[in-house]
Design a binder for these strands. Structure first.
Lengths: 135, 135
DNA sequence: GACTTATTGCAACTAAGTTGCAATAATATC
DNA sequence: GATATTATTGCAACTTAGTTGCAATAAGTC
């Protein structure tokens, strides 16, 4: 976990427990399901209660350090919040997830032009077949 | 329920039970959660088992007559499949949902240009404040 | 009307996520 | 370093959404 993240956490009165550190150490810029996160923790010899994991993920999302994304299946996927907004492509065959960057401005303009709502946010994910699974 | 839908169903060996008819009669081109669907059925005096409702929705989706969409909360929203692909805007205040049409071609081109995946489908929903809630 | 089989309703179950609370441990203060 | 404060943890119990197996029912066919 970066020193930066530590600072942000402590600054808000959060404590740096070994649970929180381990969870943050696992999170990356690729979205992971709770099941994946729990699995990795187990592999590393950590046996945290599921309550602890859910509560930590929630509070991290609440404070903007982590993003929650809906992908193909039920449940949410979690990733470290990065500086720039981006979307994902998930392989329908193997589940692999990659980032995909696209022209946000064009998209939002497109949307705003076709709606009377004041649009605040959106959810955009792509699904397809990755190069490996294509061959 | 349109005669068209009836035909499609029976043609595939499906039976026109009163349960299925009632469910289809409730579905529209605006996405509804299972809770909303069950609630309306109750109001109309129908007391179908939840299993029946879930199974019907699943098979209708499977056969392409109904679309399932992920919106703000957990669970899926169901709507009649229409001729043209479209997206939605959901009001973050009152939950109202509206269709939103945008330039699909531009979006897909944009995505294809930024990924090595063979993109098959996508999920795009907008969230904001509807005109009524703005004032 | 009798036959075939898709569909229903029920009960029991699974899995995901949540809540309350007493015990624990991270940080601040002395 | 010891002490006090309170955020956080782990546990157990619970809620809610959705699923499964199966016997009973009822559409559609002949």
């Amino acid at each position: 976990m970066s020193a930066n993240l530590q600072q942000q956490l402590q600054h808000r009165g959060h404590r740096l427990t070994k649970q929180r550190q381990a969870i943050l150490a696992i999170l990356s810029h690729t979205p992971q399901s709770v099941a994946m996160i729990r699995h990795t923790l187990h592999e590393q010899g950590f046996h945290f209660d599921k309550t602890t994991i859910y509560r930590n993920l929630h509070s991290l999302v609440q404070h903007g350090l982590v993003l929650a994304t809906k992908l193909q299946d039920d449940g949410l996927y979690y990733e470290l919040a990065s500086h720039h907004h981006h979307h994902h492509v998930q392989c329908q065959n193997c589940g692999r997830i990659e980032d995909i960057e696209l022209d946000e401005h064009a998209l939002l303009q497109n949307a705003a032009a076709h709606s009377t709502f004041a649009i605040k946010q959106h959810q955009l994910e792509f699904f397809g077949i990755c190069p490996q699974c294509q061959s």
